[in-house]
Design a protein around this nucleic acid. Structure first.
Lengths: 226, 226
DNA sequence: GCAAAAGTGTTGATCCTACACCCATGG
DNA sequence: CCATGGGTGTAGGATCAACACTTTTGC
């Protein structure tokens, strides 16, 4: 029997949201294969670390972002997805709040940048496929779990939340119905702070009430926003 | 830098449904570690095969079942989940129709059997954790994808479908409302065949209309059964 | 004829969808 | 005073949940 010769890696699809744009964090490869292509941050798992630790380490080393939400996405293991060795990659799905958008000052060759998912460069390996799957996951998940809040600042305007949903779900939302539904869930805290965004009537700030959500969830409460 | 020394395996949680019981396919290990414990079928991935091929091969070799539905479940990679070497396991989720329930005649040491998920033996490794996740997946998925049909014979009674839902979701269902809702989806074909199950009024047989479902799905149709 | 399972409709409550005007501010 | 975005209610339609009796067969 031939000895198994497969490497195991992790890759992360890290989403950020800013200016009505869904962005993804990419790094420019400075080694072959796919030298000078943009790719998802990631790399081989070390012998003693868990998969999550590997993702966190790679993100720290390559991009310097702090992650606000992380979950496993899918594992990609086709022979030939890496032209040199066989590599099975466990892909992760991550969200970053605007507070944590700042990335590593590009030291030298190893460039890091946010790209709008609407204007992606050509990606290395099967990373486009992974990214597409992550986008689908985000789209789906937005409807039945309150993860949108991990893409917004801690304090946000209702219109921010609404724009986030329209942007990511790529469809219009009725403002009144949306507000009614979200507020009826009773997971937002309305702050006593208004903010005037240039022109127009100043708007109230809201906060996601994590504890309240946790409590409701225990009672089989269903978050469900279409 | 230390050379990576991690093995990659696949494991499968294979569900079958029979006599109002959700069953899972297990094999009895005949090698250490966990010798003589029951475990999920699975094993190391070969250098040249895809992950899916590995699952299919292992199931063929170890259990001889034919799979009707297969999807990736989750990857488990904690260091220490295998006491000897580090192994990352990509777990799969599989469903088998009653037509395919027959398993390998137990050749000798290597035993294979269906266990009710209500009466499980102690399992090797972290396989109980994997099984629990698969059960959750099945429960969730039953509500928004028509995968229940992959646990039923090609021709089935409406009451079979209903019992399957009550068994797996572990809750009562209103017979009239359930029938109304499923029939309104327009994905079942009512056959012109009746079957008399011992006593009681003979019941009509139904078939799942895969093509019709595929067509509806393209039009953004939502399967949604609570 | 009785036990067992199959088949079938209606109603009230709830939720969803569509829709338009006034308010508070900055320039 | 006007442009810009914020905030709000209602009504009709659709969907859901609750509920019980009749039919067909085997014994």
């Amino acid at each position: 029997m031939v000895r198994q010769n497969i490497k195991i890696a992790v890759d992360a699809v890290v989403f950020g949201y800013k200016d009505r744009n869904l962005n993804v964090l990419l790094i420019k490869r400075d080694v072959a294969p796919y030298r000078n292509y943009w790719a998802l941050p990631g790399g081989l798992v070390l012998n003693e670390e868990s998969l999550e630790q590997a993702v966190e380490r790679e993100l720290r080393e390559e991009t310097n972002v702090t992650i606000d939400y992380l979950e496993q996405l899918y594992s990609f293991g086709e022979p030939g997805r890496d032209p040199r060795n066989r590599v099975v990659s466990v892909a992760y799905f991550a969200l970053v709040k605007p507070e944590h958008h700042s990335i590593k000052a590009d030291t030298d060759a190893n460039d890091v940048a946010w790209f709008s998912v609407k204007e992606l460069p050509e990606l290395a390996f099967d990373h486009l496929k992974i990214l597409r799957m992550a986008k689908d996951r985000l789209k789906n998940k937005l409807s039945y779990e309150p993860i949108g809040f991990d893409l917004l600042a801690n304090k946000f305007l209702f219109s921010d939340l609404e724009k986030l949903y329209t942007t990511i779900l790529e469809k219009d939302i009725d403002r009144r119905n949306f507000r009614k539904k979200i507020l009826s869930l009773d997971i937002l805290e309305e702050l006593d702070e208004k903010v005037s965004e240039g022109r127009g009537r100043p708007a109230n700030l809201f906060k996601f009430n994590q504890k309240q959500y946790a409590k409701l969830k225990k009672d089989n409460f269903l978050f469900d926003i279409k």
